[in-house]
């Protein structure tokens, strides 16, 4: 599905991601973990096309997408969510989701001016897709609410729905369970699993270890920009390098 070859990103002299190679399989939950500042978010930004890598190659479904612009990568089927959920607070939840399917439509300014049939059809299609993904994430009962008035966990789900509305095959989730309570985290994990059951490949960054260990099929551990381990949760859990990285960073944090 996604093959990364020797991916490197340097800022000035500093390598935020250093020579990382990994392969993510389709229809699996892949997790990326590592101490704060290890380069996880940079890694995501590289895959999603928000930044161009300094070196290395990113291959998605056999296609070389290295350095491709963000919006083109999205159209190829890679969607993402962000650490902070970004939604338009003043409109309704459903209204927020309609734009998600925009990338699968063709209407231009001229269609808008003459209110063409194509535009009307595509608007119907986008609305239908928005309703569908809203149902999928279990929020159809709050589609009419003003987004500012819904809970943090609901906002996370809306962000998932927005990503799903783009019809992705791979979804990158950046700390999906950040800032929500344990029970909500479990529900969210169930939702992630459901996404995979419906044929979406998931790749996520997360700090909540319990969640990762029970959820992920494959884990990659990054520290100081370098991959130090990969494997199943059990393999990673018992890897001495991983234990050291985490203990080391704990000491750093305590100091």
């Amino acid at each position: 599905m996604l093959k990364i070859h020797n991916l490197t990103k340097r800022f000035g002299g500093l390598a935020a991601v250093n020579n990382v190679s990994i392969e993510f399989e389709a229809n699996k939950i892949n997790a990326i973990i590592g101490p704060n500042g290890a380069g996880k978010s940079t890694f995501f930004n590289l895959v999603a096309g928000a930044m161009a890598p300094t070196e290395g190659r990113i291959e998605y479904q056999g296609m070389d997408i290295t350095g491709m612009a963000c919006d083109r990568i999205a159209r190829l089927g890679i969607a993402r969510t962000f650490q902070t959920t970004m939604l338009f607070d003043q409109s309704t939840v459903l209204d927020n989701l309609i734009v998600g399917h925009r990338l699968r439509t063709q209407s231009r300014l001229w269609d808008v001016i003459i209110n063409s049939k194509r535009l009307r059809d595509e608007e119907k299609k986008c609305r239908a897709r928005a309703q569908e993904v809203l149902d999928f994430v279990g929020l159809s009962h709050i589609g009419h609410r003003i987004t500012a008035d819904i809970s943090q966990e609901e906002k996370k789900r809306v962000a998932f729905a927005l990503a799903l509305a783009t019809d992705p095959e791979l979804v990158l989730l950046d700390e999906p369970a950040g800032g929500i309570n344990p029970e909500e985290t479990e529900n969210l994990a169930a939702l992630i699993r459901k996404m995979v059951d419906h044929g979406v490949t998931v790749c996520l960054i997360e700090h909540k270890m319990d969640m990762i260990m029970s959820l992920a099929d494959k884990i990659m551990v990054i520290d100081h920009g370098e991959k130090i381990a990969e494997g199943t949760p059990d393999e990673v859990k018992n890897n001495p390098l991983v234990i050291e990285a985490y203990l080391g960073s704990d000491e750093d944090a305590a100091a």
Binding site: A48, A50, C70, A74, A79, F82, L87, V99, L103, A163
Partner: peptide
């Protein structure tokens, strides 16, 4: 809302 969000939606 955000450049990053819009770009990630294929805009």
């Amino acid at each position: 809302i955000s450049d990053d969000l819009a770009a990630s939606l294929g805009i």
